[in-house]
């Protein structure tokens, strides 16, 4: 093998500054005396430099979440992700459509036979059914008799994983089960118990990879920050997110919303107060701690009594030298409000 070839193969090592001193010296001496290798060295140097212009790309943030979710699922045990069990999933979805269809059937067929009037109908007023029992509940599984299901299938619902069930061939009964994807819209007042319960459920159990939790928090903030809709259950759901959510952005949204809720709601619930204190003491994100101390300060300012633990936590924050200055100032402000009362 010629000296030129040996030196040329070593050029990348020379560029990476990985050659031992003796070989480096030999290579440089050869490059200075051999025009062809000198030219090769310059072009390698240029190429090496050009390659350096390829920028590093940041790892998508979701990748970190995905990894931690897989290897450390125990940390999210309290907020139960909304994963339907495969075995019962089809039953749940089938039950959903059966119930909706059943309700529609009853509404349409239990009254007197339909008669067409010669004059066009006009709607004078819409009156809710007074005293009527709720006919629909959001359930994971439901089994209904065929007689409770309307023979009319509305639209083109997506039905999958159909199974035929005949538990007892001698009883003349058969069953059909399936997964159903249907879109349900529930309307009502923000104070309806069903609405509050549904929103609390969505806040705490929405699919964790979906942005829906953040959207749900924003939606809840718009409505439930108004004094007339103040609701302790919503506050508790947000407190649950503040305690258990891994994503910092979602925790910030949750604590921000808690801070904007009417003070009497956050003060009334021990769960909420404790979550705020825990966040103030332990949350690694300063933005969460800032919002938590603001919420506590707001509670103190509204005349709500803070318990001894909350007061102690605020005192500790004021004295904590390595804490964010804004958190310390807000903690002091909250304490001064308590002392003024």
């Amino acid at each position: 093998m010629s000296e030129c070839h040996v030196v040329r193969e070593s050029l990348p090592l020379l560029l990476a500054e990985s050659l031992d001193p003796a070989s480096r010296e030999t290579a440089h001496r050869h490059i200075e005396t051999c025009a062809a290798c000198g030219e090769e060295w310059l072009s390698f140097k240029d190429t090496w430099q050009i390659l350096g212009a390829l920028p590093a790309v940041a790892v998508p943030a979701r990748a970190r979440e995905r990894f931690l979710d897989e290897v450390m699922p125990r940390q999210q045990a309290v907020v139960v992700p909304f994963h339907r069990r495969p075995v019962v999933r089809w039953v749940a979805q089938a039950a959903g459509v059966v119930l909706v269809a059943g309700a529609a059937y009853f509404t349409g067929h239990r009254a007197a036979p339909l008669r067409l009037f010669s004059q066009p109908a006009t709607v004078a007023a819409l009156r809710p059914l007074v005293g009527a029992q709720p006919v629909y509940s959001i359930a994971e599984t439901r089994v209904l008799p065929a007689t409770a299901v309307s023979p009319n299938i509305e639209g083109r619902p997506d039905i999958q994983h159909v199974q035929f069930v005949d538990a007892d061939p001698s009883d003349g009964q058969i069953g059909v089960a399936f997964d159903l994807t249907s879109h349900v819209t529930v309307t009502g007042s923000p104070t309806d118990k069903s609405m509050v319960r549904l929103l609390s459920y969505v806040l705490q159990n929405e699919e964790k990879t979906s942005p829906a939790r953040s959207q749900a928090i924003d939606w809840v903030r718009q409505t439930y920050s108004q004094p007339q809709y103040a609701n302790t259950e919503i506050a508790q759901a947000l407190a649950g997110i503040l305690r258990n959510e891994q994503r910092e952005g979602v925790r910030i949204r949750a604590v921000d919303t808690l801070q904007k809720l009417p003070a009497r709601v956050t003060s009334n619930g021990e769960v909420t107060r404790d979550a705020l204190i825990d966040a103030l003491k332990n949350d690694p994100n300063p933005s969460v701690r800032i919002k938590a101390v603001e919420a506590l300060s707001k509670m103190a300012g509204s005349g709500q009594a803070l318990d001894a633990e909350a007061v102690d936590s605020l005192r500790q924050k004021v004295a904590q030298g390595d804490e964010n200055l804004y958190v310390r100032v807000k903690a002091a402000e909250a304490l001064s409000k308590i002392h003024q009362q």
Binding site: R8, E9, L11, P12, L13
Partner: peptide, 12 residues
């Protein structure tokens, strides 16, 4: 060593 060298030749 050979792979890096050949890669550099091609990239050049």
């Amino acid at each position: 060593k050979t792979r890096v060298f050949r890669a550099m030749e091609t990239l050049k």
